[in-house]
Amino acid sequence: MSYGEREALSGLVTSLIVIVLFLWQLSGQTAAGAFDGPEGLRLWARSVLVLIGWSIGIAIAVAILSAVLHGILTGEKPDDRRDERDRDIDRRALTWAWYLLSFGLLGIIVGLALGDTAVKAMNTVLALCLLSEAFRDAAKVILYRRGA
């Protein structure tokens, strides 16, 4: 398994953990009505900032764990060299993720024009960012597996 594929797999695992964390925390607060009222967006922003801090820690932990497990299982030193294939896979996956994010943002704008609330729009923006990151890592894994 190449360094790029291992990096994409650990990114995908991180994205999935963070998505579950965000869904669990924000859906509970939304269901409790924490984001209703004039202070709703401020509380939402504070909650998201705390979750971003947690997600950074999770990303670091998963990256370290991935490197340690790879070293233990294979006995190899990590080789983080990247070639044209790695850069091409990164570019293609990032392009597809940007398309997903761009069309999703267009949908949010349409939703706001039709009367959606600001908290719903912000939750959707956050979800789009998380999903496009997971989509990018999944696309990289698929492209590596296909030998693209």
Rank of each mutant, 00 (worst) to 15 (best):
E5K: 15
R6P: 03
E7G: 05
L9T: 13
L9S: 11
S10K: 10
S10L: 04
S10E: 05
G11L: 04
G11T: 08
L12M: 04
T14I: 09
V18L: 10
I19Q: 05
V20L: 14
V20Q: 12
L21S: 10
L21K: 10
F22H: 09
F22K: 05
L23A: 15
W24Y: 14
W24M: 13
Q25V: 14
L26S: 02
S27E: 06
G28V: 03
G28L: 01
Q29I: 10
A31C: 08
A31I: 15
A31G: 00
A32E: 11
A32C: 09
G33C: 03
G33F: 05
A34M: 13
F35V: 01
F35K: 06
D36P: 00
G37R: 00
E39Q: 09
G40F: 02
L43I: 03
L43T: 00
L43P: 07
L43R: 05
W44T: 06
W44V: 05
A45S: 14
A45I: 12
A45C: 03
A45W: 01
R46A: 15
R46T: 14
S47R: 13
S47E: 12
S47K: 07
V48D: 02
V48Y: 02
L49C: 14
S55E: 05
I56A: 06
G57P: 08
I58A: 04
A59Y: 06
A61H: 04
V62N: 00
A63M: 08
L65R: 05
S66R: 12
S66M: 14
A67S: 15
A67H: 03
V68Y: 09
V68E: 01
V68L: 07
L69G: 10
L69C: 05
L69E: 00
G71P: 01
G71K: 11
G71F: 01
L73A: 10
L73R: 15
G75R: 00
E76V: 11
K77E: 15
D80P: 03
R81T: 10
R82P: 11
D83V: 07
E84F: 01
E84G: 04
E84W: 04
R85H: 07
R87M: 02
I89D: 02
D90E: 05
D90W: 03
R91V: 08
R91L: 11
R92G: 04
R92I: 07
A93R: 00
T95R: 12
T95I: 13
T95H: 09
T95M: 07
W96F: 12
A97P: 00
W98Y: 07
W98K: 04
Y99Q: 01
Y99F: 10
L100A: 13
L101A: 12
L101P: 06
L101I: 04
